[in-house]
C-alpha cells in the first residue's frame, strides 16, 4: 500500500519534472559508480551541460549490470552513451548495441583504443596487475611481487583475493595464466590447470565487488590481490598503503570504453558527449583524478601525473591486450570451466 502510494508520487513528480525540462535536451549516460561517478558528476558533466545547454542523467552500474540493462531495453533504449570495461564493450558491439564512431573520435586515439570494428572507443588506459599491502609486505619482509606466478607462493596461503570470472580482472588473470603456461586466448586449458592446482589453495575468496575487496584489504584479511590500477589509485588517494605491481610477464590493458547506443534519443548529442570524453581536457581530468592513462594521443600531462599513469606510445605498446572477440566467444565456456574447476 505504502509502496504503491510512493510509486504514484514518484511517477507524478517525475512527470512534473519531465514537463519542466522538456524544453532542454537530455542525455542519459551509463557508467561505473564509486570514484568514477564522483569525477563524472563534479568535474566532467557540469562543464558539458553548461557549454551545450543540456541536461545529463548519470546512471550508475558496473559493466555487466549496464550491459544487461541495455540488452533488456533493446528497441526502446533510454541510455545514450555507455561507459563499460573494454571486454563487455566488445560484447555490446557484437550484440549490436553500439553505433559506429564519428571519424574525429576514431582518429584522435591510439589504434589499440579503437574497439569493436570502429564502434567503441577506449577513454582511459588502466591495467590489471598485482595489488599488495606495502605496509604488511615490509613488516613481514616479503619482496614486492614481480611475476604472476608469485600468486602461487606458499607464504600467501589464504591471503589472496582474485575477482571472479564475471569480472574483467578475473578474465585477465585466467588469460595470463594460460599465456605464460603455453596456452592462449583460444586455448585456456593450461590456465585453468594452473589456477586449480597452484593458485586456488592460496585464494581466500573470489571477490568481484570493489567494496568487499577494499574491506578485506583494510581489515588485513588479504595481503594481495589481482586488481586494477584505477582501484589501487583510489585506495592510495584515500591514504591506504597499497601498491600495484606490473608483473614481468606483462600487465594486461584494461580500458574504460565508451560508445553511443543504437536507437537511442538524441544521437547527435551522444556523439558530442563521446567526443568530449576523449578530448584532451577530460582525458587530463581522468588521468589526474582516476589514474587513467590518456587514450587521446594529443593529451599533454604534467610530469607528476604522467609518472603515475600509462602515458605515451612506448608504455601503451608494452601493455598486453586480449583478443576480446575470441575471449567473448569463449567466455561462456570459460565461465563454466572456471566455476567447476577453479572456483571450488
Amino acid at each position: 500500500m505504502m509502496r504503491s502510494l510512493l510509486g504514484l508520487l514518484t511517477a507524478a513528480a517525475a512527470a512534473l519534472c519531465a514537463a519542466q525540462a522538456s524544453a532542454e535536451q537530455r542525455l542519459t549516460v551509463a557508467g561505473y559508480g564509486g570514484s568514477y561517478e564522483q569525477i563524472m558528476r563534479t568535474s566532467v558533466i557540469p562543464a558539458f551541460e553548461r557549454e551545450n545547454d543540456v541536461r545529463i542523467d548519470y546512471l550508475t552500474g558496473n559493466s555487466s549490470d549496464n550491459l544487461a540493462r541495455m540488452q533488456a531495453q533493446r528497441g526502446h533504449q533510454t541510455v545514450g552513451v555507455a561507459v563499460l570495461d573494454d571486454g563487455p564493450m566488445v560484447q555490446a558491439v557484437s550484440l549490436g548495441l553500439c553505433r559506429t564512431l564519428p571519424d574525429a573520435v576514431r582518429d584522435a586515439v591510439y589504434p589499440i583504443a579503437v574497439l569493436g570494428d570502429d564502434h567503441a572507443v577506449g577513454t582511459g588506459f588502466g591495467f590489471t596487475g598485482i595489488a599488495y599491502n606495502t605496509k604488511l609486505f615490509k613488516e613481514r619482509g616479503f619482496p614486492a611481487p614481480t611475476s604472476w606466478m608469485d600468486l602461487a607462493k606458499p607464504e600467501y596461503r589464504q591471503r589472496i583475493a582474485i575477482p571472479g570470472i564475471d569480472n574483467t580482472y578475473g578474465v585477465h588473470t585466467l588469460a595470463m595464466m594460460a599465456r605464460i603456461h603455453g596456452g592462449s586466448d583460444a586455448d585456456i586449458a593450461p590456465g585453468l590447470k594452473v589456477m586449480r592446482q597452484q593458485i586456488n589453495p592460496n585464494v581466500l575468496a573470489y571477490e568481484s565487488s570493489p567494496g568487499k575487496m577494499s574491506e578485506m584489504f583494510q581489515s588485513g584479511e588479504i595481503w594481495l590481490a589481482v586488481w586494477g590500477s584505477s582501484r589501487v589509485a583510489a585506495m592510495q588517494q584515500a591514504g591506504f598503503p597499497l601498491a600495484i605491481a606490473r608483473p614481468k610477464e606483462g600487465a594486461v590493458v584494461l580500458m574504460t570504453a565508451g560508445c553511443a547506443i543504437t536507437d537511442s534519443p538524441e544521437p547527435a548529442l551522444a556523439d558530442k558527449f563521446l567526443a568530449y570524453l576523449v578530448s584532451p581536457k577530460v582525458q587530463e581530468i581522468f588521468a589526474t583524478q582516476y589514474g587513467a592513462g590518456p587514450t587521446n594521443r594529443a593529451t599533454k600531462l604534467p610530469p607528476e601525473v604522467a609518472g603515475r599513469v600509462i602515458y605515451g606510445e612506448d608504455q601503451v605498446r608494452s601493455l598486453i591486450g586480449l583478443d576480446w572477440d575470441v575471449v567473448n566467444r569463449n567466455r561462456a565456456d570459460w565461465t563454466r570451466q572456471w566455476q567447476r574447476q577453479v572456483e571450488r
Binding site: 555487466s64 549490470d65 550491459l67 544487461a68 540488452q71 571472479g164 564475471d166 573470489y206 567466455r331 572456483e343
Partner: peptide
C-alpha cells in the same frame, strides 16, 4: 553472496550469474 563468497554457490547466486554476467 556476501558472506559465502563465490565458491559457495547457491541456486539464487547461480541465477544471478546467468542473468547478469553470462547474460544467458
Amino acid at each position: 553472496a556476501m558472506l559465502g563468497g563465490k565458491r559457495l554457490k547457491v541456486v539464487s547466486s547461480m541465477t544471478y550469474n546467468e542473468f547478469l554476467n553470462t547474460l544467458n
